[in-house]
Design a protein around this nucleic acid. Structure first.
Lengths: 194, 194
DNA sequence: GTCTATACTGCGATAGAC
DNA sequence: GTCTATCGCAGTATAGAC
């Protein structure tokens, strides 16, 4: 991840790679992954498709790079959770941490969360999608006892869905982003701590 | 819908149109809408792409035709709900009816529901997607008072999500489809009647 | 190391022959 | 009602300019 080895020239590199990332996030979340073409991304940056292809081997690799941070964040929560004793305290803390992850730390995060939630489908079979689902499973497992009733299992998963949902899907409802986040966390806790 | 007008030949028509529908549902739910090509659909039926285009003007029209029944079902529930006085009874009945809609009446329904839920994204900007969201909004409006708190709004929407989720997303959890449906309805009622 | 030019295959869609 | 032929654009890939 840290790529600060080979050179002393810390001065302004041609940060095309990062620009591609930014433009891709914008277009992907606006129009969806499938409907965004590499040409559009390239044109907006004043380069050609092939230039994009130089920085990322495939279109999917651009997608993956967008989610890497988020996946790492989920991993951190899972790791922490697995080291804790099961119980209501752990469940509450998991949900709070996940809510925080969805909210930040960068300005990009909410946009990314929105795209992530809305893209469940199109990225489903992609390697990235598999990674997301795997983490989602792991988080769910930390929220319910392994032998819990079906209803309990569903409540646990819906608690996570509530956090996702509150992060983006309440646009039509008045309220600041912070208020929506708090509301989502409240409902998630109701479901998770039942 | 009934196309039995112009001819007396009631005997086996070349029901290519319906075959396309069936194959499309299968492939769309397996691989997703965007990743399914018209050539695949055509090949599985032993015809060419152009033959498919004779029966459906666009790829999206195939999609729409899949959802038409479901949309009509949602309309029926909305219409019934709007004629009822607001209150817990209406909320409970709405959720029960929507649960029933997702479960049946045809064998196709669960598969369609699954596809529908997972495709939120890719069909988002399509006319079909707009129709779905509109009905979802209408159903949500019947589940919460217009001036309710943010948390209430979220609970109402999540109640619907719970039904969707229970219809398909609990594959990894033991239990029959009926058990999952009941569990989903129970959680939906908890959320909707709070 | 970064990019352009170019070409390949497959896509959704259309026109017109049979 | 179904076909062949063709279109423009998609993602991918390579060769080579700077």
């Amino acid at each position: 991840m840290c790529d600060m080895g080979s050179s002393s020239t810390d001065e302004r590199r041609t940060n095309t790679r990062e620009q591609i990332r930014a433009v891709a996030l914008e277009l992907f979340s606006e129009r969806g992954y499938d409907k965004t073409s590499l040409r559009e991304i390239a044109e907006r940056l004043g380069v050609t498709k092939a230039a994009v292809y130089y920085h990322y081997r495939t279109k999917e690799e651009i997608l993956s790079s967008l989610f890497d941070e988020h996946l790492a964040g989920m991993d951190a929560i899972v790791e922490w959770g697995q080291a804790q004793p099961p119980g209501p305290d752990r469940r509450r803390e998991i949900l709070q941490r996940y809510s925080a992850l969805l909210a930040g730390p960068t300005d990009e995060a909410p946009q990314l969360t929105r795209f992530l939630q809305e893209s469940q489908t199109s990225i489903k079979e992609l390697a990235t999608g598999a990674g997301m689902r795997e983490r989602f499973q792991q988080l769910s497992a930390l929220l319910v006892e392994p032998d819990a009733e079906l209803v309990e299992q569903l409540r646990g998963r819906l608690a996570l869905v509530a956090l996702h949902y509150g992060a983006f899907a309440l646009d039509e409802i008045p309220g600041t982003r912070l208020e929506r986040r708090d509301a989502a966390l409240q409902v998630a806790l109701e479901l998770g701590l039942h």
